[in-house]
């Protein structure tokens, strides 16, 4: 393929480049399949496992992964795969809640800063500075300790700690778009500020913000897992991914209790990041 590109006419090459831009690379396709499976786990977990996540057979405790128990069993004989699959809903939903908070609040702040400028920009700019000044994980820990140890609060805390990064990106994108020729042209044609905002500026910002949102979805899964790992989420028998790793670490003879949920976290986040990178590159 590469050896041929030098031979074809320039126009052909341009056309080929145009086509390949829409083509989905195989790694992205695999990542998409992973995400779909994870979403299905969270929506219809019972389709993927016949085991009950909270009831185990103590005669079968701490068994290594096998055909019957793909991820092995824990100290109560519960099927680890079932626990991972049934824990997905909580892990994924809380990551979605976190991203939504960051995306909505951050975008509004960034939009107001970049579009209105002036005093609004100065005040909101300091708010963002302050949010950035506190290490995001520490901020999440403080917020969750103030709200109470529940998974939903961990999600809110994670979302709040992500507001600043969305606000900064949105502000930069709005500034870039509002300085462009087509916005100026819109004003010259008699368009008002609201029209310029909704018709020209927003449509030119959402792509990079969406790419960031996808990236933040992965980051949020990690942060929420970390909070759950420290015990700041719902207590057992909830089976959030981070909590599974935390409870698995007391059994040194059964490393699959750590590795299985850890692997699920890593593969999910890796897939999310791959899709985010692809989105950013194809803009």
């Amino acid at each position: 393929m590469t050896s041929l590109t030098g031979l074809v006419a320039p126009t052909e090459r341009i056309r080929a480049a145009g086509r390949s831009a829409v083509r989905v690379p195989p790694t992205v396709a695999i990542a998409a399949v992973v995400i779909i499976i994870v979403l299905l786990w969270s929506l219809v977990p019972w389709l993927f496992t016949s085991y009950d996540p909270s009831v185990g057979d103590t005669a079968e405790k701490l068994m290594a992964p096998s055909g019957a128990h793909w991820f092995g069993t824990d100290h109560l004989g519960r099927d680890v795969f079932a626990r991972v699959v049934h824990g997905t809903a909580s892990s994924v939903t809380s990551a979605l809640v976190a991203v939504s908070i960051g995306l909505v609040v951050g975008s509004i702040i960034g939009l107001a800063s970049g579009f209105l400028r002036g005093a609004v920009d100065v005040v909101l700019g300091r708010v963002v500075d302050v949010l950035l000044a506190i290490p995001s994980f520490l901020l999440a820990v403080v917020i969750v300790s103030s709200l109470g140890f529940q998974t939903i609060n961990a999600a809110i805390a994670t979302g709040v700690s992500a507001i600043a990064i969305f606000a900064r990106l949105m502000r930069a994108e709005v500034l870039r778009a509002r300085g462009s020729v087509f916005v100026e042209a819109s004003y010259l044609q008699g368009g008002n500020r609201l029209h310029a905002l909704l018709g020209h500026i927003l449509p030119n910002t959402y792509k990079s913000v969406i790419a960031l949102a996808v990236l933040q979805f992965g980051t949020s899964i990690l942060v929420i897992a970390s909070l759950a790992f420290l015990g700041y989420g719902d207590p057992p028998p909830a089976s959030d991914w981070g909590l599974l790793v935390a409870s698995g670490k007391s059994y040194a003879t059964a490393p699959w209790l750590i590795y299985a949920p850890a692997l699920v976290i890593v593969i999910t986040v890796l897939s999310v990041n791959r899709i985010s990178t692809w989105l950013r590159r194809t803009q």
Binding site: G218, S226, V245, K249, A262, I265, V269
Partner: peptide, 13 residues
């Protein structure tokens, strides 16, 4: 990108 996808606590464990 792999390093970014592994939670801190998993690396430690």
């Amino acid at each position: 990108s792999l390093f970014l996808s592994v939670p801190n606590f998993v690396v430690g464990l």
